[in-house]
């Protein structure tokens, strides 16, 4: 249904438009998480979301992916208001990595290859040398490819998940507490890696001071509604 589309802007990196929440309200499990929240992230911009656990940081990111729908207000991705007829296409512009990844089981390399066999990803070639470079960048040995996903620690799994999204070369990276389980050198490494992706949009939820120190525009969610 949503497979045979051609998207002319996919080849023009600078054509990416903003991500925006407009007066978004959401009540989840009887708790009001957002009350008329508005925020805009321009193409290539950065946004840090802060707040206690359970304050709705994850929900906010999931809203951008159309996994959670707002009660009121509008969500725009690439300048388009999220709707049933564009969500499947827009999801493919974004990469989402969350804390405590659940990836499944099987060999790491088979998992990665399977991602590249998805109908929508067939245009992207699986390049093993690129995978190896990234594994090295993220301080995972090449041997990781032969391991079973279930053997990996939480932190390793998260880095594999990040590498997969980097291979897919998405426009927007939604990173949900990706550094919280890692030690300091790894935190620094990941923060550096992403801040160097100049033309990508980064939306980060984190408790970590290291993200805070980057001086990104920040919103606080939770407590008495949300503020920028």
């Amino acid at each position: 249904m949503h497979c045979a589309y051609t998207d002319p802007i996919i080849h023009k990196a600078d054509a990416w438009k903003m991500i925006k929440l407009e007066n978004v309200s959401l009540t989840f499990d009887g708790r009001q998480l957002f009350d008329r929240l508005s925020v805009e992230v321009p193409a290539g911009g950065r946004l840090l979301i802060r707040g206690e656990s359970g304050s709705g940081k994850t929900t906010l990111l999931r809203m951008l992916l159309g996994f959670v729908l707002p009660d009121q207000g509008k969500v725009f991705v690439n300048g388009e208001e999220l709707r049933v007829n564009n969500i499947w296409r827009l999801r493919r512009k974004m990469a989402y990595v969350s804390q405590e990844m659940q990836i499944g089981n099987g060999r790491v390399e088979s998992f990665i290859r399977e991602i590249f066999r998805f109908r929508n990803n067939r245009g992207i070639k699986y390049q093993k040398d690129k995978v190896i470079t990234l594994l090295d960048d993220f301080q995972l040995g090449t041997g990781t490819l032969d391991k079973d996903l279930e053997e990996l620690s939480g932190g390793e799994l998260q880095r594999v998940a990040i590498i997969v999204t980097l291979l897919l070369n998405r426009q927007v990276y939604l990173l949900d507490e990706v550094t919280s389980a890692l030690d300091q050198p790894l935190k620094e490494m990941i923060v550096n890696y992403f801040t160097n992706l100049k033309d990508k949009t980064l939306i980060i939820s984190s408790h970590d001071k290291i993200w805070h120190d980057q001086g990104f525009p920040t919103i606080h969610v939770g407590q008495n509604g949300s503020s920028t």
Binding site: R91, M94, M101, I103, F118, R119
Partner: peptide, 22 residues
């Protein structure tokens, strides 16, 4: 229970059948 896995696959470009296959 493994909702994150399903959503992750969707976010990786899987269509629904592909994300449900595992």
């Amino acid at each position: 229970k493994e909702n994150k896995r399903y959503l992750y696959l969707l976010s990786l470009g899987a269509n629904q059948q592909e994300a449900l296959l595992p």
